[in-house]
């Protein structure tokens, strides 16, 4: 089967700033494909190009076999999108929002009722159908948007930071719905996130940084690349300890927030030996499997949560925030 998304040399410049630098990848049908990276890495720009919202500066991409520049309407019919910011009409009811979407996408009138019931059931909002969206919580709005994105049975569902700004409980609910979707509908899901733990549900993950793809693999393989388990220790003299570890075990040690971090294979066995023979007094020892955050750290030397947003991105965000304040 041909890949559902094919991207070749796709790039986007904003004047001097290269937001996306010639990326290549393809996504198979039915996959959950994750796009991971810090704010300003070019994730949203890529999604905007794939969803025909933004014209690429160069390169090409096809979704469901349709070119994203030449056959925009066919692409639009093949995809559903859930944006970072809510795009519901607050003043209308859930039902009215869904009904309008059916009309925008030319869903046949005879099956609209059935479809609306079906998607509301998936996201557990069937009993809220007649309510004005304004009265919904953030999580409910997100769910309604996911439902809406599914109404026209898209081949690919784009989720741009689907859980941003939601509380942890709601976040995990949203993921349940997304997994349910994959099982039931066999839909291809393309999502971006900068939450490491969330990216783990993906079949494959592309890591993006400064507009470039720096890795593309399954979460398992990505973690393996880090080189084993993560040991975190704190000692009475971190500098001495760091020198000792680098010398005795030939490990690359990172010293951050009063903690030393390094990777070892077979961590459980290593730890027994290590605690017994290490000379600098230990305050704490922690052993864990690497997370995608370690992967990112390994690939870029930075933690993903350290906001590495460019000046432009910060400005954009501030402007959006002040606009929001002005509105309410």
């Amino acid at each position: 089967m041909d890949p559902i998304i094919e991207v070749k040399g796709l790039k986007k410049d904003f004047k001097q700033f290269e937001a996306v630098k010639e990326v290549d990848f393809s996504v198979e049908q039915g996959e959950i494909f994750g796009f991971l990276g810090p704010n300003g890495a070019g994730k949203s720009t890529t999604i905007n190009m794939l969803s025909t919202m933004l014209k690429p500066t160069g390169g090409e991409a096809r979704i469901n076999g349709f070119d994203i520049v030449k056959s925009r309407n066919d692409v639009r019919n093949s995809i559903g999108i859930i944006f970072q910011e809510t795009t519901l009409d607050d003043k209308l009811t859930a039902n009215e929002n869904l009904m309008l979407h059916c009309k925008f996408y030319g869903v046949d009138p005879s099956i609209r009722e059935e479809r609306i019931r079906e998607v509301l059931h998936i996201v557990d909002l069937a009993d809220k159908r007649k309510q004005i969206v304004e009265t919904f919580s953030g999580g409910m709005k997100r769910r309604l948007e996911i439902a809406r994105g599914l109404l026209h049975y898209p081949k690919v569902l784009f989720l741009d930071e689907p859980t941003v700004g939601l509380d942890p409980q709601t976040r995990s609910h949203i993921w349940e719905y997304i997994l349910k979707l994959k099982e039931k509908a066999g839909i291809t899901i393309f999502l971006t996130t900068h939450y490491m733990d969330e990216a783990e549900i993906c079949d494959r993950i592309a890591v993006m940084d400064h507009g470039e793809l720096i890795a593309l693999d399954t979460p398992y393989e990505l973690k393996n690349k880090v080189g084993g388990d993560v040991v975190e220790i704190s000692t009475s003299d971190n500098e001495a300890a760091q020198a000792k570890i680098e010398q005795n075990y030939e490990r690359n040690v990172k010293n951050k927030d009063n903690r030393l971090t390094f990777h070892v294979t077979k961590g459980d066995e290593f730890l027994v030996q290590f605690v017994r023979e290490f000379e600098v007094p230990l305050h704490s020892v922690n052993l864990r499997r690497p997370t995608l955050n370690d992967v990112f750290l390994h690939l870029t030397g930075r933690e993903i949560r350290e906001e590495t947003a460019s000046q432009k991105e910060i400005m954009k965000r501030n402007m959006k925030m002040s606009m929001r304040k002005g509105r309410r």
């Binding site: 969803s51 919202m53 309407n73 639009r76 809510t86 519901l88 979407h101 925008f104 509105r327």
Partner: peptide
């Protein structure tokens, strides 16, 4: 445009 609904309209296949 401000409240985001325009994006819902613009990504749809309506001309």
């Amino acid at each position: 445009k401000e409240f985001g609904y325009m994006r819902e309209i613009l990504v749809s296949p309506i001309s």
